[in-house]
Write a protein that binds this DNA or RNA. Structure first.
Length: 283
DNA sequence: ATGTGTTCCTGTCCGC
DNA sequence: TGCGGACAGGAACACA
């Protein structure tokens, strides 16, 4: 899936064509994704104006004039593509629905927004805007990694006493919300911390660089328009470019990019997920 | 309370 | 070319 930078890239792509625009119709082409869609989703969306588009962790939140908020999660394989007259300088005709196009939004400005998700680990829900943060999917999320609440004292406190590998701790959305497998691997490499190290056994002095490092990796990826691993696309269909900047992810057997290191990137499995790291310079 | 393993689903790639 | 198995950006859930 899309991790935070990819979701933010999608949000930024949608923002100019959705904000202030009425949803003219929603074609819901199957009853569910990971969970059933909310009752009467199409009817509740039709006629609503999008007041603003937000992102919380890997969720896109569209606040509507109906005092409801459309929540979208892309899961592992979710994509959102736009077509129609207002998309950039291009004129994209509305294409015929493709396989796994599950929900198609018709905007009043002529733009069509298609949610495509082969694996269907994604989700959509309609929730009360006023109490959005108490939604079960959002209530337990930790702080935004790019926000002020995510700082060194916080992370030190979160790691304290935890016996789980730091890789697992950072993937845990309650610790910090929005990191996924790729960017955790990348951040740990930049910080020189082994993914195998127990979270509670990292000295505060070594936790310190982790916060700015996580921010740097995410900001660089956002600036590049997200990664394009496998099939991630921006809303305009173009590939992101951060993939070229992966230092360890999916680079098993290659030379460690750290100057003077000389190590070789290894792949291990931690709680069912691949971790890529350099055993030489990550301790 | 924590930590770990399983599960949902489809597509792709790699070795035989 | 076909077939089987491993693996893929997530995270809820069940269980030790």
């Amino acid at each position: 899936m899309p991790e935070l930078p990819e979701v933010e890239t999608v949000r930024r792509g949608l923002e100019p064509v959705m904000t202030g625009v009425v949803i003219a119709g929603a074609d819901v082409r199957r009853p569910d994704l990971r969970w059933p869609f909310p009752p009467r989703m199409s009817e509740r969306l039709t006629g609503a104006q999008v007041l603003r588009l937000r992102r919380r962790s890997k969720y896109i939140l569209a606040d509507l004039s109906t005092e409801e908020t459309l929540l979208i999660h892309l899961g592992m394989s979710g994509r959102i593509l736009m077509s129609g007259k207002a998309v950039g300088n291009f004129h994209h005709a509305h294409p015929a629905p493709e396989k796994h196009d599950h929900v198609i939004f018709q905007m009043a400005n002529g733009v069509q927004i298609t949610f495509n998700d082969a694996r269907r680990f994604g989700a959509m829900d309609l929730i009360e805007t006023q109490s959005a943060e108490t939604h079960p999917l959002l209530a337990s999320l930790g702080p935004e990694p790019l926000g002020n609440a995510f700082d060194e004292p916080y992370l030190v406190a979160q790691f304290k006493g935890r016996n789980t590998p730091v890789k697992s701790a950072l993937l845990d959305q309650r610790t910090v919300a929005g990191l996924g497998n790729i960017y955790v691997c990348e951040a740990l490499h930049r910080a020189g911390i082994s993914p195998r190290r127990k979270a509670g056994r990292i000295s505060p002095g070594r936790v310190r660089p982790l916060v700015p490092t996580i921010r740097d990796v995410l900001n660089e990826a956002i600036a590049a328009g997200g990664s394009s691993l496998r099939d991630h696309r921006q809303t305009n269909g173009e590939l992101g470019y951060f993939q070229h900047n992966f230092r360890v992810y999916d680079r098993e057997g290659q030379a460690c990019p750290t100057p003077e290191c000389g190590g070789t990137i290894a792949r291990i499995v931690q709680s069912g997920r691949s971790s890529f790291y350099c055993p030489q310079c990550q301790r």
